[in-house]
Computed example of a mutant assay.
Amino acid sequence: MGVANSDGTSIYYERHGDGPVVVLVHGSGGHHAAWWQQVAALRDAYTVVTVDLRGFGNSDSSMPEFDGQDFPGDIVAVLEKERLTGALLVGQSIGAVAALKAGLSRPDRVGGVVLGHSLGGLDHPELSKLVADDRAEAVKLPVIDRLLSKEFQRNRPDMTFLFQQMGTFNVAKMADLRNLSVNGPSIDDIVASGLEITFLAGERDAVLSTATVRRAHELVERSRLDVVPGAPHSMYWERPDLFNAAVARARESLTQRSATRKATV
């Protein structure tokens, strides 16, 4: 475990294992401990870093207001503290927005970004409309039904309860984070960065449709698309086996890409 300084704010993080770097960035209801099923599965092959954004988990929560625009800097502070390079940032939901901005700001330390169940706040009129249409359908459902399948809730009431309890450790709330996507990157910004972008979607995601994700993939040149059959929005929690395998695929793709680049230099 460690603490990084992000412009005077203490950011808690943990580092596990050894190997190519995977940094896990939680969503609005998570924190570092929400990744327990990922750390245990991935740490034997990778360096797995979990981060608490400000207002979440063990990071500083003393500020009167939370500005999502500060989250990318929290991630960068951890990368710098640990002197990490070639990292794969894996963002879940709103965490993907922060991860993408962090990667774009520091391509010297980040090689790729996985946008888990998110378009990463891409600023594009067609995609913005598609996301808004998806959200309009999602808000018709109870919050828990947007995140976990009804089958999982019925069959695993214990894990459903623990999932809901995770958010009680956080001070920052979703309402505090609405401006996170403001000044989002353009497609040209992403392509020019050279980052390897992976769109990770769940076939049963009630928040963001696979059709929307596929369209984003089509528009972002050289991006990867990984649509996981049967997976809901919180795939990392409900189907960790599928989520972990997708992360490993993205990490191996980035490792191979980096090796090819070095060989051609």
Rank of each mutant, 00 (worst) to 15 (best):
S181I: 14
L177F: 10
L180S: 07
T168C: 00
V171H: 11
A172K: 04
P185Y: 04
N179M: 06
N183L: 04
K173R: 14
S186L: 06
F199A: 00
K173C: 10
M174I: 14
I197L: 07
R178C: 11
L195F: 05
D176V: 12
G194S: 09
V182S: 15
I190A: 00
I190K: 00
N183H: 10
L195C: 04
N170Q: 05
P185E: 02
V191F: 03
V182R: 12
F169N: 09
N183R: 06
T168H: 04
A201Q: 06
T168F: 06
I190W: 01
A201R: 03
V182N: 15
I190C: 03
M174F: 14
T198C: 00
D189R: 06
R178Q: 15
A175N: 14
G167Q: 09
I190R: 01
K173L: 11
L180K: 03
S181G: 07
M174L: 15
K173H: 11
G184R: 02
A172H: 03
N183A: 08
V191S: 05
I197C: 00
V191N: 04
E196V: 13
P185L: 03
D188G: 14
S186T: 14
I187Y: 01
G194T: 10
A201F: 02
L195H: 07
L177R: 05
N179G: 15
N170I: 04
S186D: 06
N179S: 14
I187M: 01
D189P: 08
N170C: 04
M166V: 12
F199N: 00
F199R: 00
N179H: 11
A172P: 08
T168I: 09
G184M: 02
S186Q: 05
F199E: 00
K173V: 15
V191P: 03
D176M: 10
S181C: 08
L180E: 03
T168Q: 09
V171D: 05
N170T: 07
L180T: 12
D176S: 08
L200Y: 03
N183Y: 06
L195I: 05
K173D: 12
D188H: 15
L177T: 10
I197Y: 00
A172N: 04
D176T: 12
A175P: 09
M174Y: 11
T198K: 00
S186M: 08
I190Q: 01
S186N: 04
M174D: 11
A175D: 15
A172W: 01
S181N: 11
F199C: 00
T168E: 09
D188E: 14
V182A: 15
R178P: 10
A192T: 13
G184A: 01
I187A: 00
N170M: 02
K173E: 10
I187G: 01
